[in-house]
Nucleic acid binder design. Sequence first.
DNA 1: ATGAAAGCGCTAACAA
DNA 2: TTGTTAGCGCTTTCAT
Lengths: 335, 335
Amino acid sequence: MITIKDIAKMANVSTATVSRVLNNNYPVSQEVRERVLNVVKEFNYRPNDVARSLKQKKTYLIGLLVPDISNPYFMEIARGVESVVSHLGYHMLLASTDEDERKELKLLKLFYEKRVEFVVLATRQNQATILNEFIHQGLKLVMVDSEIEGVKADVVVEDNRYGAYQLVQHLIEQGHQKIGIINGLMDISTAQERYQGFHDACIDHKVPIYESYILEGAYNRKKAYDSMVHMINSQSKDLPTAIFSVNNDMTEGVMMACKAIGLQIPNNISLVSFGDIRVPELIEPKLTIIHQNPLEIGQKAGEILLSRISNSTSVPYKKHIISSKIKIGSSVKRI
Amino acid sequence: MITIKDIAKMANVSTATVSRVLNNNYPVSQEVRERVLNVVKEFNYRPNDVARSLKQKKTYLIGLLVPDISNPYFMEIARGVESVVSHLGYHMLLASTDEDERKELKLLKLFYEKRVEFVVLATRQNQATILNEFIHQGLKLVMVDSEIEGVKADVVVEDNRYGAYQLVQHLIEQGHQKIGIINGLMDISTAQERYQGFHDACIDHKVPIYESYILEGAYNRKKAYDSMVHMINSQSKDLPTAIFSVNNDMTEGVMMACKAIGLQIPNNISLVSFGDIRVPELIEPKLTIIHQNPLEIGQKAGEILLSRISNSTSVPYKKHIISSKIKIGSSVKRI
DNA sequence: ATGAAAGCGCTAACAA
DNA sequence: TTGTTAGCGCTTTCAT
């Protein structure tokens, strides 16, 4: 592999000069510049970024750690990050944690050893103490999607509580008093907050909350399907009139359950969802949902990290809340 | 930042010894090993991988270049790659080309400067000559999804021609003689091959091909929708009895068009698709499709690149074809 | 405007 | 088993 030394020799200059013309950061005479450039072109020389990184202590690497890189939601976030950092020459190192705490830790460690300048972390586990330890060692972090209480890092999340609140309020306004919820894993901040929104809306409007209508969906479609089928079968004489599904994946499960059993939405049961299902254009009815914007989360995270990289002055960590808009469909029956 | 030198000093050994205990590649006495390990732990030392890469000329980096990192199809491929390379300590650098040839070239160049050990490229453009130039300079490449004729690299693709062939043959077996096709961009290999399959099936079974039934879908949903609507409106007295949609995204567009206009599938028109639509569970009817397996493409690409990295002996480049299975649904009417 | 040389943080060949 | 040291390919300070 051809190095700067080779180029220097061929152009009859020092390596310093070659570096200067390549980086355009110090005065070089026209004549020498051209001579060097010619040799560079002739040999198709490409500087070794590893060496440069070592010398400059700058890798232009951003690590992205998400539960699953094939999950469109997270990849929209990634896309958002990429869109703002790529212009500055940053590249993204991507990896899936598979929701495995040990793997996540291992990846954080590896990212750190690769000297990524920042990591964007979408995690649903791990303790604040462990993450803070990394941070203490100099790892820069910005958390997206979920929050972990006590972590010393910026956070970009959706307005989960208020989004959920709006959805449930809408149900109540349409006359619903028996509202069920398909819940996420309660050790995850997003699930807690969305549940909180449900809870607050019910309390504020004096609507009772029934234990038996609180279903465990575990943030996955299969589980949501099973829970829903089970409830319908076991409480068929006294079903809720409306369901609030806490994420889009589970919403698909709920709809599949209704379809399988023959419950019509919204005739037999109403449904609202945090996040839209896929290809809604082909599916009836149009759901009333909270519209999510993962791209914006990613962009925000990208901006934050860029500004932290450039401004070494330590401004305090902040929680950025991306507001979520409700979109009214026809999945709620007025009763 | 703490370095191997610091550790060496604190443990009263040479840097070489620290390196040895960390890498476990040379004999070190128990006593010294423990001493070093203690200091490492105490200071939470993490070796600088940039320096190691420079020295070893090994980055453990795989570059992935796809049109769009938020496209689930490509991210399934990425997932496949990751699943096989991550065990060996490889990391993935990911970037979107946005179908922009210049951007793609720039990214290839940057990946090269970062000294990625391999790049997995899913591209739909660029000439073989340009790519071969990179390869000539030492860039290792494996192409996925699409093929570019003449590129000196391994290729992993689906069996596009035969998949399409099966689909169209199925239509013909069900009695269809007037078959339309929503086509991709014909400068992309996958589109060419799928069209070829359509063409061959028609020829082999002596079914006529009508020019006016060959629609431009441009591999995108919106265009497919528009083309479909236009055809239905302009040729309403003599529509094809069946449509072959060349990719899943366009299939969604076709279904939306049918829905908008009130054409029922398969009653009024039959439909087969290369690749399944999203959430098929919630959509009627079940389509007859070719089942795609991007994960497998990624895994295969990962295996290939791993074996090329380890076996320096140059085996000839090969085209790997992932076979595609037909899945019969209820979207084709027997006539 | 240019060159010499130190050094980024490691690894590994060589010596002891 | 351990230490010394050269060197990976760059950048940048200091001379000139």
